[in-house]
Amino acid sequence: NITNLCPFDEVFNATRFASVYAWNRKRISNCVADYSVLYNLAPFFTFKCYGVSPTKLNDLCFTNVYADSFVIRGDEVRQIAPGQTGNIADYNYKLPDDFTGCVIAWNSNKLDSKVSGNYNYLYRLFRKSNLKPFERDISTEIYQAGNKPCNGVAGFNCYFPLRSYSFRPTYGVGHQPYRVVVLSFELLHAPATVCGPKKST
């Protein structure tokens, strides 16, 4: 009989979030998941669920729940959905087409922007091929755009693959930082360890 609440607040209220290319994953298990708490945590810009209804979450049980978190800019949030393409979905964080879970995003301009520009958040701009779903690539190998090998040196047709967002508070919403948490629900042929409040007794 599990009584402890799932530590969603640790994920959502973390002081620092990860850069999207090096997104963070927390496995959540053996706890009571009260998803209604999430609705009250922040004024969400996005709370979209796929393959599951957000209002039914509190009635369900899962084997595992994974919470992935990272920062992107406002106009990239739409890429965090099944079947999307674009720089983020292709080279940084890719959801599977049959994704079961929820994408939660909110504006973090007050936390993640600086007047002089916050350069701490990076994204991958160049990659030889698209990522597979939930693949994480943290390599910093020089990207070869031409025929000549780069031998690890940046220059003509040889690019450092990561680029930094420079978040400034005066930017338009599309270029402001957004914190994203992706909850993916895993149903294996194994005992369910993460249940809503109704199912945990």
Rank of each mutant, 00 (worst) to 15 (best):
D59N: 10
L60G: 11
T85M: 13
G174D: 04
R27K: 08
F134L: 14
T201H: 10
R73N: 13
G83H: 04
A192Q: 09
V194I: 04
A33M: 03
N24S: 08
I138S: 12
L188V: 01
H189L: 13
T140R: 14
Y143L: 14
F44I: 02
G117A: 15
R163I: 11
S116I: 15
Y39G: 04
L125T: 02
K198A: 09
Y123R: 04
V153E: 03
N40D: 06
T170S: 14
Y39H: 04
G152H: 14
A22N: 02
F45I: 05
N40Q: 10
T140A: 09
F185W: 05
V52F: 01
S116A: 03
K148H: 00
A190Y: 01
N118P: 15
N24T: 01
S53D: 00
T193M: 01
K199F: 03
A145R: 00
L60A: 09
N64D: 09
T85R: 06
T55R: 00
V153C: 04
V52C: 12
V32N: 06
L111A: 08
N58P: 00
R163K: 03
G146D: 12
S36A: 09
D59Y: 13
A22R: 11
F156G: 02
P54M: 07
L41D: 11
D34L: 15
N40A: 00
F160S: 09
E10A: 07
R136Q: 13
F126N: 07
Y123A: 15
Y119A: 09
S53Q: 07
T55E: 10
N4L: 12
S166W: 09
F17W: 10
F134G: 00
F62V: 13
Y178W: 04
Y50F: 12
S36D: 00
K198F: 03
A192S: 08
N64L: 10
F134Q: 14
E135G: 14
D59Q: 12
A192H: 02
V103I: 14
N147E: 08
V20P: 14
L5F: 04
A154V: 00
E186R: 11
K110F: 15
I2D: 05
S29E: 11
P149T: 00
P149Y: 14
T15A: 09
T55L: 10
K128Y: 07
V32A: 14
Y66T: 09
A42I: 11
S116W: 15
K56D: 12
P43T: 11
V180I: 10
G174A: 00
V153P: 14
N4Y: 09
S200H: 08
V115I: 08
I142W: 14
K110Q: 09
V194W: 06
V37A: 02
S184Y: 10
V173P: 00
S164T: 05
A192E: 02
Y91M: 13
N40G: 10
G196A: 09
F126R: 09
Y121F: 13
N64V: 01
D97N: 09
W23F: 14
K199D: 01
P191K: 03
K199I: 10
G146T: 08
S164P: 06
N64S: 04
S53K: 10
V37W: 02
P197G: 10
P197V: 00
T193C: 07
L60Q: 02
F156E: 00
T46L: 03
L111T: 15
A192T: 05
A42S: 08
T170Y: 15
V153G: 00
N147V: 03
D59H: 00
S53N: 00
F160W: 11
A42F: 08
F45M: 02
T3E: 02
N1A: 14
L41V: 03
A145T: 04
D98H: 12
P197K: 10
P191V: 12
S200N: 02
K132I: 12
Y66I: 00
Y66W: 03
P43D: 03
R73Q: 06
N64Q: 00
Y178H: 03
G117N: 15
K114A: 15
F156D: 09
G117K: 15
D97G: 08
R78F: 05
P197Y: 00
Y39A: 02
P7C: 02
L5E: 05
D97I: 13
D98S: 11
Y39D: 12
G196P: 05
N130T: 08
